[in-house]
């Protein structure tokens, strides 16, 4: 062995000894979460993923299906109008949630950060839907736009007016409205918290330089909280094909395909599915995961690379 190799070998040993404490610490901390994940996630779900590659038949049980489920899933995705609509709705809703919901969350958080008129009150009220059970708010909202709206509109027009969730021209907008305008809670809380954690003197300098509120937000504050924004984008995009838009609460299992999202579609199908139908549903799940994952990482990468840098 050369002197170089001897030196290297000693360094590795020393390195291991040096890092032993850290390694031991990591193992201890991660032991429970890892075992928990293996048992309650992998153990439960690896079978679900494996279902994508199986057929189930009541005489023979499970058999290997190769990629047949994927062929059928892709066929349906390209030919079934309802499924195409569900994909479209999932993406549309996500875009609206980001474009409108996230934008408004940021703006409202900015207002609260600036501590303008009634900021404390607005902060409290916007967070309320996050505090109250979804079931509660869904029941109340449904009755509000159903019974109450119908009665008021019928009295005003003199004709029988169905509820907003029963009218073709207003259903979708009503559902989108609910999901956007009742979903600020946690985002406003976390954004306003992130804004409060920024360096106030930077904002003061901007003020002295004569920038207006909009400029302060775009050029000063937003770059400082941009990492938070990235976190939310990752969460939002990951949820694209899992979000059910509270359709279950509004329509039980009868939401029109014009409203359905993939998350709702999969959930309601699973509720009624027999064993033989699970493999195809599992396949859809896997396909959408494979679509979402690279998009998430790509968006994260692009935002990190091209986003504003406060520092």
């Amino acid at each position: 062995m050369t002197k170089c190799e001897q030196k290297k070998k000693l360094t590795l040993k020393e390195n291991f000894k040096k890092n032993f404490q850290d390694i031991l610490f990591c193992v201890i901390i991660l032991l429970y979460p890892t075992i928990q994940f293996i048992i309650f996630y992998l153990g439960v779900n690896v079978n679900t993923i494996a279902l994508s590659f199986k057929f189930f038949d009541y005489e023979g049980g499970y058999s290997f299906a190769g990629l047949e489920n994927f062929k059928l899933a892709f066929y349906n995705l390209f030919n079934d109008t309802g499924l195409k609509l569900a994909v479209g709705n999932s993406v549309t809703y996500r875009i609206i949630a980001i474009a409108v919901g996230m934008t408004l969350s940021l703006m409202f958080s900015y207002y609260i950060y600036l501590n303008r008129a009634m900021a404390g009150f607005f902060k409290a009220i916007l967070f309320m839907p996050a505090v109250v059970s979804t079931l509660v708010f869904t029941i109340i909202f449904r009755k509000f736009v159903g019974d109450l709206y119908s009665e008021i509109a019928s009295k005003i027009t003199g004709e029988m007016v169905p509820g907003l969730l029963a009218t073709e021209s207003t259903k979708k907008a009503t559902v989108f409205f609910y999901n956007v305008f009742f979903g600020f809670g946690t985002a406003v809380l976390l954004y306003s918290g992130a804004m409060s954690g920024t360096n106030e003197s930077v904002m003061e300098y901007a003020e002295v330089d004569g920038t207006n509120y909009w400029q302060k937000f775009i050029y000063v504050l937003f770059p400082m909280i941009f990492p938070t924004f990235i976190t939310f984008m990752v969460m939002h995009i990951s949820d694209t094909f899992m979000n059910q838009m509270n359709l279950l609460g509004f329509f039980a299992d009868s939401a029109s395909p014009k409203l359905q999202t993939i998350g709702y579609f999969l959930y309601t199908k699973t509720l009624k599915a027999s064993l033989s139908e699970y493999p195809l549903l599992a396949t859809y799940g896997l396909i959408f995961t494979l679509i979402t994952m690279p998009i998430v990482f790509l968006v994260k990468h692009l935002l990190e690379k091209f986003g504003p840098n406060a520092y």
Binding site: D57, Y58, D80, T81, G82, L85, S254, A255, S256, P257, K258, K269, K272, A273, S274, S276, E277
Partner: peptide
């Protein structure tokens, strides 16, 4: 048996756009 939920008779009153 392979697609029972699809053949529940009352649920077949639907089109690709309307349930």
């Amino acid at each position: 048996l392979g697609a029972q939920s699809a053949f529940v008779y009352y649920s077949t009153f639907r089109t690709s756009l309307e349930t």
